[in-house]
Write a protein that binds this DNA or RNA. Structure first.
Length: 511
RNA sequence: GGGGCGGUAGCCAAGUGGCUAAGGCAACGGAUUGCAAAUCCGUCACGCGCGGGUUCGACUCCCGCUCGCCCCUCCA
């Protein structure tokens, strides 16, 4: 089946075929680790995970690599005199505050002034969140998730190559800059060609900095600065690398190729980050292509608006999972959310449209996860867990495959699955096989019915169980007032109550 | 000013140049229930941001406009 992806490079849907048929080489821009990643970041990471799982679904072997940006870049990188506060220093302040309030686990960061400890702390948090949400590459740390700070040598090597090949120069300020005029393709990805760039339109370019560059769009590769909180020796003085070089370097190094198949990231990275990556990699390799496909996820809105710290909508994964989000009425939701629910909420709409994260949407997703889980449980019972192998001739699976192959149409795929999940298939073993294959991409059907219960404390389980029995007793005695009170108690603790002839069952709500 | 993406019912969200515009949620009616929940059955867009054009026919193609979002050197 032909896979079609929208390529930012051409602004068109293109049929995807890997350059090397044995392996798809894929690189995703990962998090900066000066703070917790928020759900907007995770939308982008989950998008990359869907790309990877889709490729695997269609039988490709995928080598997926992600970076961890742990070099403390200036808060204002454009500020060439280094006046901005280092992000790692800002993070140190934050961690010190969090340590006081007990948010940082005992022993996690023994010295908040050590930037490597800060970076590792947030890296660990990121990995934990990513694994919770089922992002595959997170289980491949550290082989396929690389730290920038552990690849400084490779960056210096690439900078040397760029200097040798005439794509870089040392400015009067001692900073090594990339010369955008040396690379004729500059602007091809973003449309921001040199003639179109409106210098400083974003208001983030300082005049003083520009004086040292040959062209206003030239960007930093290495900055000598012995006062920087993270610094390394280099032929250009002790200092630190520019932001863009790490991805060019690590993609080439870890994927062992000058040209890779797919590069993903958030839409804001198209310019300058990915434009600069292309300039660097192509400048160093001499090839005219870095990534054959560039794929970008649109931004996430929260309740219809941009996420904002002042509105309290900069949710982290833990904020959502632990119920610290606001409902439509502005109340704190308070109910724990199953990770599969958040995963589905963040993947269910098309990656090239803005996604609106809402409390209502989360409730919707919870219903869908529950429905799929119940469906799976029914199928497993019906066929004693013996799933049969099915191929794309199986109607739902074929439809699912068609949707995915059409530029990752997850919403369309869900439109096929959800009504199917209300049916009772004639061949439960085949249906289970199909569902399992689809879930390899979606990753939203919790593994076993008991896995959620296992996550609860034993005492809570037995407490709820006891209330269920009391409810049954009251009902048997036709003491409905008591029964209703007990039911209310169980529900208040985040459970759905189901009464049946064989007794009351409480199920923890997924959100 | 420039580059790019999007605007389908209360909400989320597919889709096609031409049968009655998927699906989910919510809502409503019914079955069931002590009452609910869950489940099941049924109802729910004469219209697809606005205005033109092309066409026998457009929500789907083209032009203009409008709104939202991203970028034009912090950003997923």
């Amino acid at each position: 089946m032909a896979l079609r992806f929208y390529n930012t490079l051409s602004n068109e849907l293109e049929t995807f075929v890997p350059a090397d048929e044995t392996t798809v080489r894929m690189y995703s821009c990962g998090p900066t680790v000066y703070d917790f990643a928020h759900i907007g970041n995770f939308r982008s990471f989950l998008f990359a995970d869907i790309v990877r799982r889709t490729l695997e679904f269609f039988g490709h072997n995928v080598h997926h690599v992600m970076n961890i940006t742990d070099v403390g870049h200036m808060t204002e990188d454009a500020n060439a005199d280094g006046a901005g506060e280092d992000k790692m220093q800002a993070a140190a302040r934050r961690v010190k505050e969090d340590k006081k309030s007990g948010k940082v686990p005992e022993g996690a960061v023994t010295n908040p002034d050590d930037p490597y400890q800060i970076a590792q702390y947030y890296t660990d948090c990121f990995l934990e969140d990513a694994r919770t949400l089922g992002i595959k590459v997170a289980f491949e740390y550290p082989e396929n998730i690389l730290h920038a700070t552990q690849n400084i040598d490779a960056m210096q090597e690439m900078i040397s190559q760029l200097l040798d090949r005439g794509h870089a120069y040392v400015g009067p300020d001692g900073v090594v800059y990339y010369s955008v005029e040396s690379f004729s393709q500059y602007g091809r990805l973003s449309g921001n060609t040199l003639d179109r760039l409106m210098s400083g339109a974003g208001g983030r370019v300082s005049e003083a900095n520009q004086a040292n560059k040959r062209h206003p769009a030239d960007f930093m590769l290495w900055k000598p600065d012995s006062t920087h909180i993270m610094k390394w020796d280099s032929p250009w003085g002790t200092g630190y690398p520019g932001w863009h070089i790490e991805c060019s370097c690590m993609a080439r190094k870890r994927l062992a190729a000058d040209v890779i198949d797919i590069h993903t990231g958030g839409e804001d990275l198209i310019f300058p980050h990915h434009e600069c990556e292309i300039a660097q990699t192509c400048g160093a390799t001499g090839k005219d292509t870095f990534a054959r496909f560039w794929m970008h996820a649109r931004f996430l809105l929260v309740e219809g608006e941009k996420m904002s710290k002042s509105k309290g909508s900069f949710y982290t994964v833990r904020d959502v999972l632990e119920g610290r989000i606001k409902t439509e009425s502005g109340q704190t939701a308070g109910v724990r959310v199953h990770p599969a629910v958040l995963r589905l909420e963040l993947i269910k709409s098309h990656y090239r449209g803005n996604m609106n994260f809402t409390h209502k949407g989360l409730m919707d997703s919870a219903g869908a996860v529950k429905r799929l889980t119940d469906f799976r449980n029914r199928l497993e019972q019906a066929c004693a867990g013996a799933a049969a192998d099915v191929d794309f001739d199986y109607p739902i699976l074929g439809k699912f495959a068609d949707c995915l192959a059409d530029d990752l149409n997850i919403a369309g795929a869900l439109g096929a699955i959800l009504p199917w999940a209300s049916t009772t298939p004639d061949d439960p073993a085949a249906a289970l096989g199909a569902l399992n294959r689809m879930n390899e991409v979606l990753g939203v059907v919790p593994l076993t019915p008991s896995s959620d219960a296992d996550a609860e404390s034993g005492s809570e389980n037995s407490h709820i169980e006891a209330l269920c029995r009391q409810l049954d007793e009251a009902r048997a005695k036709k003491d409905y007032a008591t029964a209703d009170t007990i039911r209310g108690q169980i529900q208040d603790q985040g459970y759905d109550v189901k009464t049946s002839p064989s007794g009351t069952i409480a199920e923890r709500r997924l959100a």
